[in-house]
Computed example of a mutant assay.
Amino acid sequence: MSTSGMVYIVGAGPGDPELITVRGQRLLAEAEVILYADSLVPRQMLSVARADAEIIQTANKTLEEILPLMVARVQAGKSVVRLHSGDPSLYGAVHEQMQALAQAQIPFEVIPGISAFQAAAASLKVELTVPGLVQTIILTRISGRTQVPEGEELAALAAHRASLCLYLSARHVEDAQAKLLTAYEPDTPVAICFRLGWPDEQIWTVPLSEMASTTQQQELIRTTLYLISPALKLEPGHSAARSRLYSPDHSHLFRPRAGSH
Rank of each mutant, 00 (worst) to 15 (best):
H172A: 01
H160Q: 04
A178E: 02
P107V: 07
T140R: 03
Y167G: 05
L63C: 05
E150D: 11
I66G: 12
A159W: 03
L83W: 08
I56S: 06
G144N: 04
R73P: 14
L133V: 11
V81Y: 09
G113C: 02
A72T: 12
T62R: 14
Q103M: 12
L139P: 10
Q118R: 04
E109A: 15
G92T: 05
A178M: 01
I137V: 11
P112G: 06
G132Y: 01
L180C: 02
E54A: 12
A120N: 07
I114T: 12
G151P: 06
K61Y: 08
I142Y: 04
E152Q: 07
Q57W: 14
L157C: 10
A51K: 14
Y167W: 00
A122P: 13
P149D: 03
T129F: 02
E152K: 02
K78V: 03
I106D: 10
A156S: 13
S163I: 00
A102M: 15
R82A: 06
R161H: 09
A120L: 08
S115V: 09
K78R: 14
V74P: 11
L139F: 07
A122L: 13
H84W: 04
G132M: 05
A93R: 15
R145N: 10
M98I: 15
A158T: 01
D175T: 03
L166G: 02
K125N: 15
R73M: 05
D175N: 02
K61H: 12
R171Y: 00
L164S: 01
F108D: 14
P112A: 04
A104I: 14
S89C: 08
H84A: 04
I55M: 06
A59P: 13
I111P: 10
A116K: 06
M70L: 03
T140I: 04
L139N: 02
V71K: 07
P131H: 06
L180I: 00
V148C: 01
F117C: 10
I111R: 11
S89M: 09
E96L: 09
E127Q: 14
I114F: 13
A120Q: 08
A59F: 09
P131L: 02
I137T: 05
S143G: 14
E96S: 14
D87S: 02
A76F: 07
Q135S: 15
P149W: 00
H84Y: 05
H95Q: 15
H84Q: 11
A121P: 09
I56E: 06
S89K: 04
L90R: 06
K179P: 04
A119W: 06
K78G: 14
L90K: 08
L69A: 11
L128E: 02
Y167I: 01
V134S: 06
A120F: 10
G151N: 07
T58I: 10
S123P: 14
V81R: 03
N60M: 06
K61C: 13
L124F: 09
T58H: 07
S85H: 07
L164I: 01
Q177S: 01
A53H: 09
E153K: 08
E65L: 02
S123Q: 15
S143M: 08
T62L: 09
N60T: 13
A120M: 06
Q75S: 10
A100T: 15
G86C: 03
P149R: 01
F117Y: 15
Q118V: 10
A120S: 11
V81A: 13
T182F: 00
A93W: 05
H84V: 07
P112W: 02
L180S: 00
A155H: 10
